[in-house]
């Protein structure tokens, strides 16, 4: 047998040692970061706009609104069995808080109710925000599981009790994002 013959058999042996490992880190986020700002003065040109003021105590509680009209409280403390919402910087007045809204993995839309208590404990102001997005899913390997990506985040509609306008800052929620949705509040 020639050298090439031996090379052929050796490469067959090398083939048997081949294996597959699971090294995958996803940057996709299943939550959309939302932050509240004071209303923009629309009568001024962009170069004369005052700095945006982040509203620290914009909401007291947040609920998810299911398609069968079920409300589940996710902030500040979830109902029984429901995890509380992730909120960054909410306890620290010096930081701009961002709430991370969990997107509905079973549907292409999600609705949230934002409640703000007034001085009179019997009065509350509630705003609803409907979001739409595109779900994509990719299987990595059986051991790594699957990866879900939410993209093309858009605002379907929102109420106007306290919300003045809602803008999408980034339509692809990712781990490093600071904010995806900007809500401008009425004064």
């Amino acid at each position: 047998m020639t050298v090439f013959g031996w090379a052929g058999w050796l490469s067959l042996a090398g083939l048997l040692a081949a294996c597959e490992d699971c090294t995958f880190t996803s940057r996709n986020n299943t939550e959309a970061a939302i932050r509240f700002y004071s209303r923009r003065p629309f009568n001024l040109p962009p170069n004369r706009q005052p700095p945006v003021v982040v509203q620290n105590l914009a909401v007291d509680s947040i609920y998810t609104l299911d398609f069968n009209r079920t409300l589940r409280k996710i902030f500040p403390v979830g109902a029984a069995g429901v995890d509380s919402l992730r909120a960054a910087g909410y306890d620290n007045a010096a930081l701009a808080p961002a709430f991370f809204l969990p997107l509905n993995p079973g549907r292409d839309t999600a609705a949230y109710v934002f409640v703000r208590r007034l001085a009179n404990p019997t009065r509350r102001l509630a705003d609803t925000l409907w979001l739409s997005y595109r779900r994509q899913i990719a299987v990595i390997t059986p051991n790594c599981g699957f990866d879900q990506q939410y993209s093309q985040l858009t605002v379907l509609r929102h109420s106007r009790v306290r919300f003045d306008s809602v803008a999408i800052a980034s339509d692809l929620p990712q781990i490093a994002d600071s904010v995806n949705i900007r809500v401008y509040l009425r004064p």
């Binding site: 090439f4 998810t64 979830g78 509905n104 079973g106 899913i137």
Partner: peptide, 29 residues
């Protein structure tokens, strides 16, 4: 015997399907 270099054009026609169970407490799953 030969040691060769070359190129290929390749095409695959396929279908795929995924069934999965999801879990999300804020949405009741």
């Amino acid at each position: 015997e030969s040691i060769s270099i070359g190129f290929r054009y390749a095409q695959a026609n396929f279908s795929h399907e995924l069934f999965y169970f999801g879990s999300s407490r804020p949405w009741g799953y």
